[in-house]
């Protein structure tokens, strides 16, 4: 009897812990799907050449339909003027979002993902035309 209570108690605690961890993982802003895997960028993200290459990749990867031309208004979040963490951007690009954004981790070289990060970071200072 006592041992079955113990088992029930331990199981319940484990379940609660699992749920709590799940909630934390799901709601932690730092989680950002893949942020921990980002590591250090292979180049200077403020380098204008890198940003330019990122802009080209951005245009070729569903601009207009998704984030809007040059990060302008669309149904997906507007990127122009958005203040986003580097790791968050990397995580979103690699893993996508539950709201329908595709993840590029398996189909795009890591270097290109960092170029996109550089471009999106540069949009923080961009103003609407």
């Amino acid at each position: 009897m006592r041992s079955s209570k113990l088992i029930v108690g331990v199981t319940a605690a484990a379940l609660l812990a699992a749920v709590a961890i799940g909630w934390l993982v799901d709601h932690s802003p730092g989680f950002a799907q893949g942020a921990n895997a980002a590591g250090a960028p292979p180049f200077d993200l403020s380098d204008s050449k890198v940003i330019g290459e990122g802009a080209q990749l951005f245009r070729q990867t569903c601009t207009g339909y998704c984030h809007g031309k040059d990060g302008g208004p669309s149904r997906a979040p507007k990127l122009r003027g958005a203040k986003l963490e580097r790791s968050y951007i990397y995580g979103r690009i690699t893993k996508g979002s539950p709201n329908g954004m595709p993840g590029f981790e398996t189909i795009m070289p890591r270097e290109n993902i960092w170029k996109l990060v550089a471009y999106v970071l540069s949009l923080a200072k961009a103003e609407d035309p």
Binding site: Q56, R59, Q60, T61, C62, T63, G64, G68, K69, G72, T106, I107, M108
Partner: peptide
């Protein structure tokens, strides 16, 4: 429409191939 030269990407998977963008 702004046309842009693009090389088709087929590895490891096919990438979008618009050859430009639009607003």
């Amino acid at each position: 429409v702004t046309v842009e030269k693009q090389t088709p990407v087929t590895e490891p998977a096919a990438g979008l191939f618009f050859g430009g963008d639009q607003v």
